[in-house]
Simulated assay, not measured.
Amino acid sequence: MAGVTSADVARESGVSRTTVSYVLNDTEGTSISEATRRRVLETAARLGYAPSAAARALRSGRSDLVLCVLPDWPVGPVVETILDHLADALGERNLSVLVHHVRGERPLSHLWRAVTPRTVVGLTPFDPDEARGMRQAGIQVVSTGVDDPAAQDPQPRIGRIQVDRLVAGGPRRIGYATTDDRRVADFADRRLAGVRAACAEYGLAAPLVIPVPVDAGAGATAVAAWRAAGVDGVAAYNDEVAFAVLAGARIAGLAVPRDLAVIGVDDVPLAALASPPLTTVTQAIEREASYLAACVLAALDGEDAPAPPHGGPVLVERDSA
């Protein structure tokens, strides 16, 4: 039955709406028989009644929902780790996490006004007007700074670490395997800026940039173009792109790293299982995810946000570079 209300439950149970409210909200201090309580619960379950989150928040003065606003990024191992940590930390407080993946131009206010969350967490800074509107509605707003332009940007440093490792291993002509996913082009461009700067400092030619979809055939095409240009070391946007490059090298019959060194970013679980095991740069995402969860819990408790964790991207040495 669609649109079932507490009135429907009351009518089917033969009790008042007040009694239904007391039973469904487990209100203390009421004298309701066990038989009546059971009848109301069974009727609500049979009818498929679900109490309004907004009404429940209005009655209790607080919501048990945390809305996490995810930008238009692909959901891969990094984002999944962040969300897992957040859900685990909030679950210990009996709070639920609703993830909203931004698509299109629809204002965020359409969502938070409908679900009335207790807290809204953004993985990038909110529009100032949106943040103001949420605060005026009594909603806590936590902007995490995971990709805050005002914070120190680790992305160029990632590119520099990649070039440092490739040059240390011997390659003198560098290729850059960028992503074809425009949703993360800004990340890729900032990492590429670090690669370019490092190549210039080493006196190397500018990196030969080729977009590489996560596909073995695309990897083979890119590898052929790099080899024709004398490239012997490739820095990839992330580990998934690096896997495509490794596959392309195998198709071309090249030995990695002797013929072509490859280095990725993120240190996803499969990186250690690649053939050969992938040298990569970790962003210590577990640490960043724990920091995000701590920021949200501090906001819930009315405390100041913790200091950002120390440290930056770190090389993970394996066999591919």
Rank of each mutant, 00 (worst) to 15 (best):
A2S: 04
S6T: 06
A10M: 05
S13G: 04
S13C: 13
G14F: 12
S16L: 12
S16Q: 09
T19D: 03
Y22T: 10
Y22D: 12
T27P: 10
S31D: 14
A35M: 01
R37H: 06
L41E: 11
L47T: 10
P51C: 00
A57K: 07
V66Y: 02
C68Q: 08
W73P: 01
V78A: 06
I82N: 08
D84V: 05
D84L: 11
L86W: 11
A87F: 00
R93Q: 15
N94S: 15
L95V: 11
V97G: 05
V97Y: 00
H100I: 02
V102Y: 07
V102S: 14
R103C: 08
P107F: 03
P107G: 09
V115W: 05
R118P: 13
D127Q: 06
G133N: 00
V141E: 10
V142D: 10
G145M: 11
P149A: 01
D153V: 09
P154G: 00
P156T: 03
I161R: 06
I161G: 02
L166R: 02
I174F: 01
T179P: 08
V184H: 03
A185R: 09
R190T: 05
R191K: 13
A197M: 04
A198C: 08
A200R: 15
L204A: 01
A205P: 12
A205D: 15
V209W: 02
I210H: 13
A222L: 00
R227W: 14
A228D: 15
G230E: 07
V234H: 07
A235V: 06
V241A: 11
V241C: 11
F243W: 09
R250N: 05
P257F: 04
R258C: 07
R258G: 09
I263L: 09
A272K: 07
L273N: 01
T279V: 02
V281C: 05
V296N: 03
A298R: 04
G302S: 09
E303A: 15
D304A: 15
A305M: 03
P306K: 08
H310Q: 00
V314D: 12
V314F: 01
L315S: 04
V316T: 10
E317R: 01
A321E: 00
